[in-house]
Amino acid sequence: MMTALVIAILVVALIFNFTNGFHDAANAIATSVSTRALSMRTALLMAAVMNVIGAMLGTSVAHTIGSDIVSITYGSDEGNMIALIVVFAALFAAIAWNLITWWFGLPSSSSHALIGGLAGGGIACGLMVHWSSILDKVVIPMIVSPLGGFIVAYIAMIIVLRLCAALPYHRTMRRFRWAQTVSAAAMALGHGLQDAQKTMGVMLIALTAGGLHSFDHGVPAWVKIAAALTISLGTYFGGTRIMATLGSKVIDLDPAHGFVAESVAAGFLYVAAMGFGAPVSTTHTITTSIMGVGATKRLSAVRWGVAGDIVVAWVMTLPAAAAIAAVVSFILRAALL
């Protein structure tokens, strides 16, 4: 039974990873598509390839998800079963929240949905939740990365505008369209680096709880490949609802603004993953970077009503996913233990 449950969880984890790519495809390519730097299919294919490459570049975020959110005791049948219940509940909650926010076209964080699900499932199963780690590696980055994205993008955009002020507009925009191919690829690489690792982390918990692998031995190569391919596949089939929100509803972008927003957001993703192992939300970072470059036109250029709806979804993600996971964990624990 334990092995069958582990296999089921691995399948659900890869489904979550697919929805993550599907849900977050807009993060990498919305600005490039909206400015006509890339066609939709070309942008999606490029993003899918870069997601695979990014997913293979590190495991620090995977270890944060696997060990720094809830305290899991392996070894006993009950402890292993509780670990599997928590992981399944977290994945169920994250998938549910991804689909809810996708339906309403809101760019919420798949990462925070998964983390909230782990915390909610852990509470329901009586596990110790590492609140200090959640504060340091989730809540603080959740505030710093969007705020930093807004400020840095605003400053960078002002610098770019001043450097390009005397240049012919149409020729300059053509060059920024070419540059956006690079910035969109960098954003997709950062998405793979961040988000695929989160699925690797929960798969690692499931494999360890099922006695099929040891957490101390790191992430198996096949887990990395499976996570990379499924998030890439989800990205390729990415939906257009959220893409429309990021690409045009927050602000009307030109290629220069799109290039700066993508470059700044990608930089934050790399620093967080490679420097701190922090599971930063790609959604939060690119959205506020878009707001930052837009604010250089004038504050009224940003559609703050749409931005407000996005912020509400951000704030709701952790507690909503935690609540869903807690209910699922309670039901499964009563049925299986």
Rank of each mutant, 00 (worst) to 15 (best):
F104T: 10
I225K: 05
L161W: 13
G66T: 06
G116L: 02
S39D: 13
T19Y: 08
A83L: 10
G122M: 09
A227C: 15
A26T: 02
L212R: 11
T73H: 09
G258K: 09
V315A: 15
A30K: 02
V182G: 01
L99Y: 04
V86D: 06
V327P: 00
S183D: 05
L14C: 12
T285N: 00
A13S: 11
F237R: 03
T3C: 06
A30F: 11
S214G: 03
T240Q: 09
S133R: 08
G275T: 08
H257K: 12
I155E: 06
V138N: 06
L135H: 04
F104E: 03
A272E: 00
L147C: 10
V219C: 09
V6L: 13
I331H: 03
I9W: 03
K249I: 07
H23I: 01
S329C: 12
G247F: 14
S32Y: 00
N17K: 11
I72W: 04
G21P: 06
I134Y: 15
V219R: 03
V271F: 12
L318F: 15
V293P: 00
T283N: 02
S39I: 15
A90Y: 04
L207R: 07
R175P: 00
I72L: 15
K137I: 12
S32V: 14
A47Y: 07
I69W: 04
A265W: 01
P319W: 14
I155H: 03
A227I: 04
V152I: 15
L45E: 04
V61D: 05
L336N: 01
V129Q: 01
L212I: 08
I159F: 07
S329W: 00
R36K: 12
I85P: 01
I53F: 08
N20V: 03
V70H: 05
M316V: 15
G218I: 01
A96P: 07
R175N: 12
G148F: 13
I151N: 01
F215Q: 09
R303H: 14
S248V: 09
V264I: 12
I65Q: 12
H217M: 06
F88M: 14
M142K: 01
V271Y: 11
T19Q: 01
V139G: 02
M56Y: 15
M128S: 12
A4V: 11
G149F: 14
F215H: 05
I134K: 09
I231Q: 00
A320F: 15
S39V: 11
I155V: 13
A335T: 09
V11R: 05
V271R: 06
A323L: 13
I53Q: 00
R241G: 04
T59G: 03
L269H: 05
R241T: 04
D216R: 07
